[in-house]
Design a protein around this nucleic acid. Structure first.
Lengths: 343, 343
DNA sequence: CAACACATGGCAACCGATTGCCTCGGCTCC
DNA sequence: GGAGCCGAGGCAATCGGTTGCCATGTGTTG
């Protein structure tokens, strides 16, 4: 089923068939109708590859994520997918598997067939990204890279919200469990948290780096043992959940003995016990805005490489944070439970 | 950077360059080396689209999933991605958003550029799938469709394992919370559970259908209120987690008053309290085997359309199931807690 | 030494669209 | 009535590879 078959069926030249589809108005309405009908009869579908070969537009976008199984990115993917689909674009996923090298490799493979790239939580170096941005339109998500269009969440405000929340509960000494070193968001969150803490007169210590997953949080719980912090803020929710479990396993009670908070508000945050207090990021929206920006660039607009576009966050308070209690007595032994409201 | 540039640089014809890459042995080793070197110098990358246009092989595969954000499929995606990557193939994701119609639509869009399709948990009708399989190589995951190659998990054995586990704990009356009607796996699980229950002399009632997510489980918990079942098996882990919360909210204790089990063993199953007893499916392996089969077909092998390939499961016992207790006294009031082992 | 096989490389058609340029007929306008 | 314009459609080149077929040169064999 090629354009030539349709042309023969409709009694016109192939070029006319092509125009009938891609350039409405360029051919006579009646002829166009006749062609469309012939195409329908033959079940003709235009071959995207052939088209792409000459137009150099594939209508495909690359989306690189550090880990497909990370629920944070699952939502981002869905958002990106939706926005792309609406515009008639298809998303190619590049799973970096938490490695800058593999990220480069999988991008390398698909780079030549896509019209643009969204880098979500990229583990590549700034210069590698800038290099990439020279070849194809690129939008970076959750990271700021000079000279490249970026979309980020409001980490500053998020960190400040947690800090204020914890300060309001009487906590004076915080711990921050860090994410991967290559993560820009980690830096942003830590810096903002430290500043907010300073403003509020709180102590805050950094631990890590730890892997941004549940095991990472578990390990962090071990390292935190015996520290004086009465509240722990984790780089992300998975770590925070790991913390919840690790601290509990040590005989500590959350939030009675120690408060825990995370970032992102993944689904699981509401499912663990106690529910996790966290800074909710508009994950779906991150995906859609990134793609929309990218599409704007692909379609001509010179990507504004100024300040990153900042998406708002909000604090979701659940059961994992509570009023600070004066000194815990014997942290390890099982004391009589009083009532234990799950929230 | 085209093949012609390389040809000029190396002092040979374009066809020779092409052969140097795609048909090793067809050109003299020395010449091939010279060409490869010239290509390297120019930074030449072969254009997949141009190649695909004539070979009709794009080296891309479609993977349709009902929901990208569902952790079950996240793992499947990762497995598929890996297997495809190893073979030099790229995966295009088609998010069906839990709808047969949207599934068809997104497939429609990418069908013409892929060499084959993996349908994971498809919501389409059997006939629609068979139709599709006529146009392109198709492998169906977690569903049996006659005349189409299938890869499924051992639902029979899984259901039997849970049933035996629960029977061993003294339970005599089970409830099954059903998944989406369009889900083949739901039918398989329910049928097998019923049969196993019959063999073991257990009662079992079916409730639903319910959506295969946490809210679905929550709703099911409401409907279950006042039933006599002392153990509930859910279609999947998300529902089971919903049940956990819903039942707890009703004042019931899991596993003291009622045991809960799920299917799949998603990450979150180990994170909730109590931990969820569940039938672990080899999610990653599902993705890889499906893709490997598909690739075999794409590369010539006539997909064996006989009995589906069955992947083994195993039962993971956690804290959500326990010995049945003689009649609960007053299910709603908060009784004195005894010790509450978390596992 | 003729005849033939074989290894190697070039020529040119082709995949299925898109698009610049040209032609042709009908109209308008002066 | 002729110049000029416009709408509509066709021709053919082009995108960047692949591949069937042929030409050449070298080695092998009888």
């Amino acid at each position: 089923m090629t354009i030539y078959d349709v042309a023969r069926e409709a009694g016109v030249a192939a070029s006319t068939v092509s125009r009938a589809f891609s350039r409405p108005g360029r051919v006579n309405a009646a002829t166009a109708e006749r062609i469309r009908e012939a195409a329908g009869r033959l079940g003709y579908r235009t071959n995207p590859l052939a088209r792409a070969l000459v137009t150099t537009r594939t209508h495909m976008l690359a989306l690189a994520v550090p880990d497909v199984t990370n629920p944070v990115f699952a939502e981002v993917i869905r958002g990106a997918q939706a926005a792309a689909g609406d515009a008639g674009y298809t998303v190619l996923l590049a799973d970096a598997q938490e490695s800058g090298v593999r990220e480069r490799a999988s991008l390398e493979r698909i780079l030549s067939v896509v019209d643009g790239v969204v880098l979500a939580g990229s583990r590549m170096s700034d210069s590698a990204i800038r290099m990439l941005a020279k070849q194809k339109p690129v939008v970076v998500l959750n990271r700021a890279v000079v000279d490249v269009p970026c979309v980020v969440t409001d980490n500053e405000r998020g960190a400040r919200l947690v800090a204020e929340h914890l300060a309001g509960l009487g906590h004076e000494s915080l711990a921050y469990v860090a994410g991967p070193e290559a993560s820009w968001a980690d830096g942003a969150r830590w810096t903002a948290l430290r500043e907010a803490a300073a403003d509020l007169g709180l102590q805050v210590r950094r631990h890590g780096p730890c892997t941004p997953d549940v095991p990472g949080g578990l390990r962090a719980a071990g390292e935190l043992r015996g520290r004086s912090a009465t509240a722990v803020v984790a780089y992300n929710d998975q770590q925070a959940i790991g913390l919840l479990r690790g601290l509990t396993a040590q005989g500590l009670r959350v939030p009675r003995d120690v408060s825990v908070a995370g970032f992102d508000d993944i689904d699981a945050a509401a499912l663990v016990t106690p529910g996790l207090t966290t800074v909710a990021a508009p994950l779906r929206a991150e995906g859609t805005t990134a793609v929309r920006h990218l599409l704007a660039m692909v379609q001509g607009a010179a990507g504004h490489t100024g300040a990153p576009l900042v998406l708002p966050v909000r604090l979701v308070v659940r059961g994992s944070t509570a009023q600070r209690r004066r000194k815990r007595t014997s942290p390890a032994s099982g004391t009589t439970r009083v009532s234990g409201s799950a929230r």
